[in-house]
């Protein structure tokens, strides 16, 4: 039987102390939050779909990504699934950013 990597209520693996440090949101996180909400408002995606995309991603990736990184990954999955964007065009835009801003 398989338990989803998101379904962690009571899981032993996550039983450590809670990190209560808070960080001020960075621009890209606020943007990710807003694009996500706006896509819902215009009817392009449902929150349930994004949750499902996060549940289907690689388990170690799910655990290692920051919160809004997970959101971005799931938004990309759903936008590609719905044929609104292609991975190639996002990659091309990324390459242009790398050229303009320098590699991360």
């Amino acid at each position: 039987m398989a338990r989803g990597h998101h379904d962690i209520g009571g899981s032993e693996r996550d039983s450590g102390p809670i990190d209560r440090a808070e960080h001020e949101l960075e621009d890209w996180e606020i943007l990710a939050d807003a694009v996500n909400q706006a896509l819902g408002v215009v009817g392009v995606k449902r929150t349930d779909e994004l949750r499902r995309a996060r549940e289907e991603m690689d388990s170690e990736l799910y655990r290692s990504l920051k919160y809004y990184e997970r959101w971005i990954a799931s938004m990309e999955t759903i936008l590609i699934e719905k044929k609104i964007l292609t991975k190639e065009e996002i990659d091309r835009r990324m390459a242009a950013f790398d050229k303009k801003w320098g590699e991360p």
Partner: peptide, 10 residues
């Protein structure tokens, strides 16, 4: 980072 760039591209 990678995903931050990704959201600007998206």
């Amino acid at each position: 980072g990678y995903y931050a760039r990704r959201i600007y591209a998206i």
